[in-house]
Design a protein around this nucleic acid. Structure first.
Lengths: 200, 200
DNA sequence: CCTACCGATCGGTAGG
DNA sequence: CCTACCGATCGGTAGG
């Protein structure tokens, strides 16, 4: 094999491990990902699984980054070129609800899961989850601010407050769907988000 | 020792184990509770820890029941004799926020933690979490219904929708406090709940 | 409630 | 990427 082929083969191996880790973590949590089970699932040795990463924590971090990329692709990418402000904000809520009701992650919202799992476990995984949570809230707040400036939301509206409320509703939708298996989870979320955005 | 004394001693042993399990689970999750760590923490043998319960799952269920009792004592008991409808509903929101900002559970809301941890793990723990989540939402919805009947909330308001929104905000407050360490978590939640309850 | 023990699995390493 | 292995820990049991 040429060096080029072996580099790309290594990248494929790595991404296969990450994909399997994302799926395991989505259902049982990032802490429940084990090297042995990944190896069994991928028909590899444990040494082959841990090799490209070094430690289990690095596998967790790689899975988290992949999950963030998948969330971004589902929720943000489809709307990023829409008109900033209320139009893009409403579209973001819709794509977020679609993401939450879809099957990107078999076990439900990866970030919500990781947030509760790691909020009491100091370390780089926790830090990264908190960072992305803050980043995503800023993305929402930015469009809220523009919507206020355009007069689409009442003067004096606090963008961070609205972003907080929308994010909370997303967590509620996730719980309604994943824990309670409520068929009206999307509608509940949609009504709540519309009320927050004064769309009636 | 008389039989009576030994019965009460057994009950004390059991409740000590449950208390330690609640604390471990609050920080790291119910799945991360291990018999060996409980034994070490309580200066007991593993056999002594598992004995009163039989299996780890029974310890998890006992810890969950205790956590539910603690939640109820914090949030519901102080308000249950208030006037049904809007007065009790507002007081419930306040006691809930106080609970979320307090130190009853060192790792944050036990129910939210257990919900994300077990929503993808079939079994009695998951079932009990879902049951209590549904029960608590009905408790909220009951006062919403009365508030609507009394004219304290707009005609046509869907009690289940309002209960869903309040519960979602509670999840948001928990994440803001536990993951993001936001100092304004309580105020964010309070503003959101007041808006949901049309209190302005 | 204890000691002593079971097989299984954990994260990870040595050496190739 | 593999085999073979390390010490630690897992849930749980036998026997007292």
């Amino acid at each position: 094999m040429s060096p080029r082929a072996s580099v790309s083969a290594a990248a494929e191996t790595r991404s296969g491990i990450v994909e399997a880790a994302v799926n395991q973590a989505s259902i049982e949590g990032l802490e429940s990902v084990t090297i042995g089970r990944l190896a069994g699932q991928l028909n590899m040795s444990k040494a082959g699984v841990i090799g490209p990463f070094g430690t289990k924590e690095q596998i967790q971090l790689a899975a988290l980054e992949e999950a963030i990329a998948m969330f971004t692709a589902d929720v943000w990418t489809p709307v990023e070129n829409l008109e900033p402000g209320m139009p893009r904000l409403e579209a973001t809520c819709e794509s977020w609800l679609t993401h939450l009701m879809g099957d990107t992650f078999p076990g439900g919202c990866f970030l919500t899961q990781s947030a509760t799992e790691f909020d009491g476990r100091p370390g780089p995984v926790r830090d990264r989850v908190a960072e992305y949570s803050a980043l995503w809230e800023r993305v929402l707040a930015r469009d809220v601010k523009i919507a206020v400036e355009n007069g689409d939301l009442p003067k004096g509206t606090d963008p961070a407050q609205v972003a907080f409320e929308i994010g909370s509703i997303a967590q509620g939708v996730n719980q309604a769907r994943q824990l309670r298996r409520q068929k009206d989870a999307r509608k509940r979320g949609q009504m709540a988000m519309r009320r927050i955005l004064c769309v009636f």
